[in-house]
């Protein structure tokens, strides 16, 4: 499984323009809000956390369609199975690779987004911590949705439809982290949500992949 993960990371590095697209998309979405609601720093500061979270969520969705689809098309998925990798191992490697190549770089960009939205420096830490803790759930849920839609023609749009409702808890608790009163509770719930997502998703994604090979 480790060997597959290292190859996924190598492939992501060779085709890094794909990863960069998600990062640019993240910054563009963040920049759209000032155009929409006006540049007043006070207004932006108040909605900053929510905007960063929504932008990060959407950016994570971008690369999900390419998670399993290319491997199903070029026979790689078949070969991985005949080489003895379980569907669960394949799904886990892919989800981890997705998190490392998409969510992690996003984390590094949150200060930039926070600056654009005039978020107070004090909130950057909580914002980054929330994203670090919440994005694994997004990768996990996204992995399941990607596995379920392998082979479908318009899989990409469908993935967003499947992931977004399931991502609501992560979004609420992630932004809730910055709430002065309920911050600690939000942290616990966020961690719980991510743990549940991480523990369920390899098996759900494996079922999806197994069905795709039928």
């Amino acid at each position: 499984m480790l060997r597959l993960l290292t190859r996924e990371l190598r492939l992501a590095w060779v085709e890094r323009s794909g990863g960069a697209i998600a990062l640019i998309f993240f910054l563009i979405v963040v920049s759209l809000f000032p155009f929409a609601v006006g540049p007043q720093p006070q207004v932006l500061a108040r909605i900053a956390a929510g905007v960063v979270w929504v932008a990060a969520l959407l950016a994570c969705l971008l690369s999900l369609e390419r998670l399993f689809q290319p491997d199903a098309e070029d026979g790689t998925l078949e070969q991985l199975v005949t080489h003895g990798l379980s569907f669960e191992a394949i799904a886990t490697a892919k989800i981890i690779a997705h998190w490392l190549t998409t969510a992690l770089p996003l984390l590094l960009l949150t200060p930039l987004a926070a600056i654009l939205l005039n978020a107070p420096a004090a909130s950057w830490g909580l914002l980054a911590a929330g994203l670090a803790l919440g994005t694994p759930a997004l990768s996990a849920i996204g992995g399941v949705a990607a596995a379920l839609t392998v082979g479908l023609r318009r899989g990409g749009i469908l993935i967003s439809l499947l992931v977004l409702p399931l991502a609501v808890p992560t979004l609420i608790f992630g932004v809730g982290l910055l709430d002065p009163l309920a911050g600690v509770a939000a942290l616990k719930w966020l961690a719980a949500t991510t743990l549940v997502a991480l523990s369920v998703s390899p098996f759900a994604a494996a079922a999806g992949l197994r069905a795709a090979l039928e």
Binding site: R10, V14, D74, Q79, G84
Partner: peptide, 15 residues
């Protein structure tokens, strides 16, 4: 331990 060759060749174009 089996080796299987299906219709596709499982080659990554960029590698």
């Amino acid at each position: 331990h089996i080796a299987y060759l299906g219709h596709d060749n499982a080659l990554k174009a960029v590698l």
